[in-house]
Amino acid sequence: MHSNSITLDSWRDALAEKQGNQLQERFMHAHVAICGAGGLGSNIAVHLARAGVGHLHIIDFDKVEITNLNRQYYFADQIGMPKVVALKENLSRITPYCNVTAEILRIDETSVNGLFKNESIVCEAFDKAESKAMLANHILENHPGKTLITGSGMAGTGPANDIKTRRISRNFYLCGDESSDVDKEDSLLGTRVAIVAAHQAHLVLQLLTGYGPAIS
């Protein structure tokens, strides 16, 4: 399939040139879970794969629809495919050396149990507020040692600079403007969603370096 593909050595050399050897080593051994493969999750996954993060566990139950294409990392010829399958394909075209576990599953209060066996960092990338809260409560109550990065507040046409990363407590972070609700705004622009996704992905990389923001 990847007739023009790159060798592992050339990929490592390229990452080392752009990011440095030390970061590349840390990223390569990291395991990150992404809950939801929509506007947030698909873009988080692309950023992490490009950075050389070694292992992604991506979970979503949904299929690609035409209304996803304004903000989600899919293509018109993927409409109808399960999102995680389409995303795994797209990531493999960016780099064949990101190990992607694509799981077709609707995460709810029951199915979430035991889901994150290998991952120390979990990215919440759902669309519904209730789902975001459910996952946050589950992780904070049951897995206090795991790092949780949530995304909340990205609808509408407000300033890009309203979107921030905030450390709420030791292992709990929130990215977004914290207020623009898709149920109250008229729009959900790919730009603002991608900014939140980039905040989440960047925080993953920052934490993998061993440093992160202070609690505020």
């Binding site: 506007g39 947030l40 669309d127 507020a129 709420i168 929130l174 705004e185």
Partner: peptide, 10 residues
């Protein structure tokens, strides 16, 4: 007390 109030969109 910190009440994190999630909003929809993603």
């Amino acid at each position: 007390c910190e009440i994190v109030n999630f909003v929809g969109g993603g």
